[in-house]
Design a protein around this nucleic acid. Structure first.
Lengths: 202, 202
DNA sequence: CCTGATTGTTGCACTCAGTGCAATTATCAA
DNA sequence: TTGATAATTGCACTGAGTGCAACAATCAGG
């Protein structure tokens, strides 16, 4: 059994546990340092040192520096899709997605959200990869939609829905940043969905 | 006057001309080497040497290696908007954009288009920045649309149009790559626009 | 508990992208 | 011709990312 008194998921060996812990430690430390000193000013040496690993080992956990931030982003995508699956199947797709996004975003502190967003805008490469990950989210979302509403005849309707949903997410995130978090993110998101949904079904 | 017998735009000094020429030389050489040896395998030293400049000077023309490829991408955006301005104002927006994109794409050899696309997929960062540039195109397109159809009451309709147009461009580029250029790009683009347009105005 | 296989960690040396600085050279406007 | 402005370059430096080979931790089975 576990020689240390650590709580860990059943059937998880020491190897897997250590790996999971180290991974979490890297992202935590990384995010903290990025927020403290800025993305560019933080070196991998610092992150590695603070996380208690060697610089070389870092690359066994992440392919590159920006993947620390990107992992947060792709987490979001997965969580949204998972929340979507819990939505009732008789809700209109656009509303179901909107509510799934709302639910996930409610679990993230507003100030942290803004801070991370600002962080990502600081580096062109990170910003680009963030936008690119939206495109991946679109594909993931489309796949989830087809799973949830397989009866839908025209697949393109769902394509359009996923494009619009991710578009709405993009627009509201943008607006949230532009007005510096003045209004709650949920309101902006609802507005964006309402506007796009209204346009699409006049 | 021009001491060399070079044809150059009127009112263009020697400085501007040399700069323009060097810029063109870098992109040409860069693209050629990338296609020959691959993106990662081509170093800036090689590009600079082949273009007859020093490595250091390269950075006075491009901020980074990937901007060589990105400049091609942003050129596309500008050319599409310019072509859009020549379209008759009484054509429905979606059709006008479709035709503008078609016109611009007709000027690019199909094989070169495929090759560049493959090139960009080879590097995650370049690919990401390409996708990110789609987002910029969307903004540029939206601005152009508002200029062309200022009468339109609901600006969100135009937002949606630009989102869908760039979406269609993305989808068809993707399909073109997936089927390795089997069908002409124009056909794919027309299909995508038709499908999305059909969905939006049932 | 021991053992051999597997997997994780590390240091080292290396390549290459990108930057800051300061010296030199080319172009310009007058 | 000259003084200002902008382009080019070399040099030295930082930091990301990789390949390799040695070493340590974990595991599964006897």
């Amino acid at each position: 059994m576990n020689s240390d008194d650590e709580i860990s998921p059943p059937g998880e060996g020491k190897r897997e546990r250590k790996r999971r812990e180290t991974l979490a430690r890297i992202t935590d430390v990384g995010l903290r340092l990025f927020l403290q000193r800025g993305y560019d000013a933080t070196t991998l040496d610092e992150i590695a040192a603070e996380a208690g690993i060697s610089r070389r080992t870092f690359f066994h956990y992440f392919k590159s520096k920006d993947e620390i931030l990107l992992s947060l982003q792709s987490d979001m995508g997965l969580r949204i899709v998972r929340a979507l699956e819990d939505e009732p199947a008789d809700k209109p797709p656009l509303e179901a997605i909107r509510d799934a996004v709302l639910e996930v975003c409610n679990t993230i502190p507003a100030d942290e959200m803004l801070a991370i967003d600002r962080l990502m805008r600081a580096s062109p490469v990170v910003q680009a990869r963030k936008l690119a990950s939206y495109v991946e989210h679109e594909a993931t979302l489309y796949a989830a939609l087809r799973r949830k509403w397989p009866g839908e005849q025209r697949q393109l309707a769902l394509r359009l829905v996923s494009m619009m949903s991710i578009g709405a997410l993009r627009l509201s995130t943008d607006a949230y940043h532009r007005e510096d978090g003045a209004r709650p993110f949920g309101d902006l998101l609802r507005e964006a969905f309402a506007a796009l949904g209204g346009e699409a079904n006049p």
